[in-house]
């Protein structure tokens, strides 16, 4: 029972990591209708920038604020310079560009900062509290920041004219233009915001998994899983999906190990965590293609 609670808590902590990145994925999807395979590497690169500023003596939050802004500009640049000429290109070409971006940011980080893992300071005070045996202060902080980001994003898309315009531009660019929306800039803005969220995600993940060029590779996979389970078009769904994937993978391994202990039969265990998580994703998508919390698009003619 004790272990079950610990595994759930640890799953929630991991879930917060996935949820954070899933938010950035949703951001790009909602504003450009693309799935950005380079999101993980962009976040990793931003985390390195934050690390560098901290090395130069800046406070974590100040460094993060600066890097979030710089990342925003990088995101806007990527869209305007690299993706703009591909507006009418087929999806496959865009996927190839994303993979290219992934490789570029990956090798750039490796070339500048090396491949040895780096310690990344947690911005949250290391204090003991009731239940701190189950979940650390950084993990709690991460969950809170993720939820705060979610609320901010949700409000932005729902209530601000700019957020609405971005959604409109992604859903139906031609119609959005007819509403006077400068669609090209909305796409660039979406990229910028996603990059800024990615910077937050990367900087919160790095203290847990350590900073290195590969740090986001597997997290991106889980982040996708979370986003897809919850609904890639829904920020709230993505966050809940991230938590679900995080808790589920731990529970799967825990129950598998328990089963093996009690009956001696090995069915699933630590090695199958990702596999089972992906099976869940596929199952959810088969039963409910828009994800657990995604809106079903109904079209009537």
């Amino acid at each position: 029972m004790e272990q079950l609670l610990q595994q759930v808590a640890s799953g929630l902590a991991n879930g917060a990591i996935y949820a954070c990145l899933a938010l950035a994925l949703v951001m790009i999807f909602v504003s450009t209708d693309h799935i950005n395979f380079a999101q993980g590497e962009l976040s990793m690169f931003s985390a390195y920038l934050v690390w560098q500023l901290i090395q130069w003596g800046l406070n974590f939050w100040l460094a993060l604020a600066i890097v979030a802004f710089v990342s925003f500009l990088i995101g806007v640049m990527v869209e305007r310079v690299i993706l703009r000429p591909l507006h009418s290109a087929p999806v496959l070409s865009i996927v190839v560009v994303f993979i290219g971006l992934l490789a570029i940011f990956h090798s750039l980080a490796g070339a500048i900062w090396g491949h040895t893992i780096k310690d990344f300071p947690s911005p949250f005070p290391n204090i003991a509290f009731a239940g701190s045996g189950y979940i650390g202060p950084h993990q709690i902080g991460m969950i809170l920041v993720t939820i705060a980001l979610l609320v901010a994003l949700f409000s932005f898309f729902r209530f601000t004219p700019l957020g609405l315009a971005m959604r409109a531009a992604a859903q139906n660019p031609a119609s959005a233009r007819l509403a006077g929306i400068r669609v090209d800039w909305m796409l660039a803005l979406g990229w910028g915001l996603a990059a800024a969220i990615g910077a937050v995600a990367g900087s919160l993940v790095a203290p847990v998994v350590y900073l290195e060029p590969n740090m986001m590779a597997s997290i991106l996979l889980y982040g996708f899983a979370g986003a897809l389970v919850g609904g890639i078009a829904s920020p709230g769904g993505a966050v809940v999906g991230g938590f679900i994937v995080g808790v589920l993978e731990n529970l799967i391994a825990y129950l598998g190990n328990l089963l093996e202990k009690t009956t001696g039969v090995y069915i699933i265990g630590n090695g199958e965590k990702l596999t089972v998580a992906l099976i869940i994703v596929i199952t959810v998508l088969t039963l409910k293609p828009s994800g657990l919390f995604g809106h079903v698009t109904v079209k009537r003619v």
């Binding site: 609405l164 959604r167 859903q171 031609a174 119609s175 007819l178 006077g180 698009t297």
Partner: peptide, 26 residues
């Protein structure tokens, strides 16, 4: 110039209210 396009150009995933708010974006 308000263009009501062929096929109506509705933002189908948004609510009616949001459609109207988007329209007044400028």
């Amino acid at each position: 110039v308000g263009h009501v396009p062929e096929g109506r150009g509705t933002f189908t995933n948004m609510s009616v209210d949001e459609n109207l708010r988007v329209a007044a974006y400028t």
